[in-house]
Design a protein around this nucleic acid. Structure first.
Lengths: 166, 166
DNA sequence: AGCGAATGGTTCAAGCGTCAAGTAAATTGG
DNA sequence: CCAATTTACTTGACGCTTGAACCATTCGCT
């Protein structure tokens, strides 16, 4: 029998350096943003992401399954987090009238207030770490690269909020 | 009293789209790579990263504190992982002769074998998701952007392996 | 020398994420 | 129109990460 997978194409030195730096960004950036949010607002990066999605959607309400797609999380993870956020009164769950199986997460006023309180510090840090060190062209290039990568990671683009137009 | 922080500069629509796509990459890419490694090699992304660092260093040995820097992890996290890897005989700990407080993690033959067994699948996936969808120029641009970001995240560049030359 | 501070590492409890299994409601197909 | 499947979500057990407290060793200062 012939081997069904050849020796893989290893990375060139240049590609390897690029990849290692990407790994460093991948691990340090979420940690840094998370630490700031935790410190200043008592929210996980993921919790903030959830609340922030709701705050930007018209109606401030979303089905859990859709919210899970938008935040790239498993339904199980989201279910746990929503439970915690509900116990803190930052959102509430209500049954979806259109489908008996589904629930909708609805942002409460307190939840909206939490996002509004957390957002400035968060945005400032995102600017400081990512947006401001790059000029407009570089940011576009970064965005283009991410779009390519997402084409592979998520071919159906199902995690893309449709309410955002270019 | 005057407010000590103005309303922050919010992101423009374009910047916001770029940032949201970056967040999607930040969350999905490590998850996808981790799932593949777990499935095919029984290793966490982080465990693989640790073993892989050791496998590339001359001597296959590193002090834990340095290894923690290189892998962007807390010493506590690393200590736990090293303990687990040691119990699997993928590496061993030995006291650092030069400093009574320090330990060195040393890759075992089994650890080396584990990296060599896991690497092909991992590299193939990294290529598929990141390297191959970008042309050489785009990858360079991505790398440049990451370097800028790392300048902010890690000004001292202490997480950069010195044994890698450009 | 010698004392205080800093460094290197470990441990434990608490919290969070994941996976597998479970329930309930809707859809499909015969 | 009923059974099988699929979809939406929840739960529980287990594993990993974090943060604080802890010990031991070494460094910095005088």
């Amino acid at each position: 029998m012939t081997p069904d997978s050849q020796e893989p194409r290893w990375l060139t030195a240049e590609q390897r350096l690029a990849w290692l730096d990407m790994v460093r960004v991948l691990t340090r950036l979420p940690a840094t943003l998370g630490a700031q949010l935790e410190r200043d607002a008592g929210l996980t990066f993921f919790e903030y992401h959830v609340l922030s999605m709701l705050s930007e959607i018209p109606g401030h309400a979303l089905r859990l399954s859709r919210l899970a797609q938008l935040t790239s999380s498993s339904l199980s993870r989201l279910s746990n987090v929503v439970k915690r956020l509900e116990s803190r009164d930052l959102l509430r769950r209500e049954p979806d009238p259109a489908d008996g199986r589904a629930s909708r997460a609805v942002l409460t006023d307190a939840g909206m207030a939490a996002v509004e309180q957390a957002a400035p510090g968060h945005v400032t840090l995102v600017r400081e770490l990512v947006v401001d060190p790059l000029d407009a062209k570089q940011l576009n290039q970064l965005h283009a690269a991410h779009e390519r990568i997402l084409d592979r990671l998520d071919p159906a683009s199902s995690t893309r909020p449709e309410w955002l137009e270019t």
